[in-house]
Design a protein around this nucleic acid. Sequence first.
DNA 1: CTGAAAGCGCTAACAT
DNA 2: ATGTTAGCGCTTTCAG
Lengths: 347, 347
Amino acid sequence: MKFEAVTIKDIAKALGLSTSTVSRALRDSYEISPETKKLVLEYAEKINYRPNPIALSLKEKRSRSIGIIVCEIANSFFSQIINGIESIAYDKGYNVIIAQSHESYDRELINVQYLASRSIDGLLVSVSSETKDLEHLQSLHARGLPIVFFDRIVEDIDTHKVTVDNFKGAAEATAHLAATGHKHIAALANSEYLSITRERLAGYKEGLAQHGLPYDESLVKYCPHGGLIYEEVEQAMDELLSQKKKPDAIFATADKLTTNCLRYFKARNIRVPEDIALLGFSNIDLTELLSPSLSVVRQPAFEIGQVATNLLVDLIESKRPVKDFETQVLQPHLFIRESSLKKTKKK
Amino acid sequence: MKFEAVTIKDIAKALGLSTSTVSRALRDSYEISPETKKLVLEYAEKINYRPNPIALSLKEKRSRSIGIIVCEIANSFFSQIINGIESIAYDKGYNVIIAQSHESYDRELINVQYLASRSIDGLLVSVSSETKDLEHLQSLHARGLPIVFFDRIVEDIDTHKVTVDNFKGAAEATAHLAATGHKHIAALANSEYLSITRERLAGYKEGLAQHGLPYDESLVKYCPHGGLIYEEVEQAMDELLSQKKKPDAIFATADKLTTNCLRYFKARNIRVPEDIALLGFSNIDLTELLSPSLSVVRQPAFEIGQVATNLLVDLIESKRPVKDFETQVLQPHLFIRESSLKKTKKK
DNA sequence: CTGAAAGCGCTAACAT
DNA sequence: ATGTTAGCGCTTTCAG
């Protein structure tokens, strides 16, 4: 079943005009007489005429839609970003098509190609935790598709990027753990391929250094799927807790790592923060309701989405090729709650 | 900046063929000789030809995209549903365009009209908590746009619908609270306009009746925005707790109501379940990690999305107008955790 | 001020 | 087996 829309032709026929006159009248062209305009406008209104965006797209060679690639939308951080993206996109007359990689390089590849073939005008990308090879994005970028990276950005493609000061966020978090008396702070990290992982681990080192704590590689564990799979967190934690130098605090570099780490402690009846402290990046809204309430580094997700979208639309609508690209860095915020409470206070 | 795609014309020119021959070769038509096909296919592959979906849409008068209206994507229940929708949509070659009402009728209206004007092939709708007037959907439906309602369905439009057995879920939940010794079970409900609210409150009554508890209207409070705004939950709870007959248990009918109710108790230092029990509809993944862990009625969100999408695609692709519509009812599941523990046990 | 015609990329009669 | 043409809805020269 199809639902037939009114076209310009219908209006032309009904009014005894040509389609071009109707088209011009609708766009308020100076060449059309006021009377004709009025006639056309009123009739169009009456029969509820809406221009066919597909025909427009074909003509203008643009679809007024932008693609988004994220790992998961059922993740507060990304759904907040998407809210930010939509708020700007709708304002500017674009709609968004969302695709999820589920942290799989293969799915990212398929999605990117799918979106590109759907003739999107631009792409907002946060790469999957498996992504090393950037050829799929590089070739599109080289062919002129505007791309803006956010959160998980990549070095090898020169375009606009939006991220937070991961180094600072991680350094503050780690420094806080150190300042509250923790001596063996482990890092539960995302995939090593990701920019955010490198930056956050660098911040972690800095935080340790600030308090004169040594950096110990055995205290750093990577989760290739960013904690999306509980088992990988479980394994990483099992390893951490079974070594001779047992950590007394965990710094987790991503949302799912943080919550799954807490899940792990619950399952093992390990008390937080009495037995071990926990602090991680997270944008969930329920941190205060958790037991214990979670200390987190929170990112301005909505703003990330807004900024990235503004940059992308600028690229799309720029008359001439853009050469000057910028990387916008927003500020994360540290929220101290129970899970990282002072060691000395509790006992 | 624009990124120019390869067209059928380019191939035709390069190979000295006509566009129709190329078109037919690409679609593996029987009228084309194997050699020509091979030639075309290989060349198309080589220059990475992708058909322009916009041109196809214009020709076929279909966009292969479906619109989704939900209140919020940053809500586990809906993001899980969207995952289900996408899983089927992508399989069937459709992409999805998501719009959020944020529980506002006005935004729903704008979004519906926007989506309709973007020539979507069909619409998946869960109405906003403010929606009473259905004219915007009715007129589209009357004009032949396939629509499937999910979760928050409406009576007055005859089409496919997908929901869960809200009556049963609510009855079981309430009966559980009654069975564990609670005598004054209050209902913290969503907007009264919603089908799910009516069904869940009917189930609530049934649960009370099963245990010989009276239905008391003063124990039922509505939140017009479904708990999206904390203050409305706060006010409803303030009212409930200030009346002479103070509830000893809360049954909440929606995700945000449940978590915001818990937030309220935390803020007031009211112990759950010792001072008051809590049980509500919720699809968040962190219920076990909350303090106390939350007893919930969980809905098969992913499946709801899948079923709804299958039904919608059936409608879209049906050759003749569909008259026989169905309402699929899936089963919710009750998970008992700490927040609704037996009154007599704790003290 | 208005109309006729071409063209965006593609498909499908209708030739040949 | 392949080419020609028209048309999807719209805009935009180019002619009056």
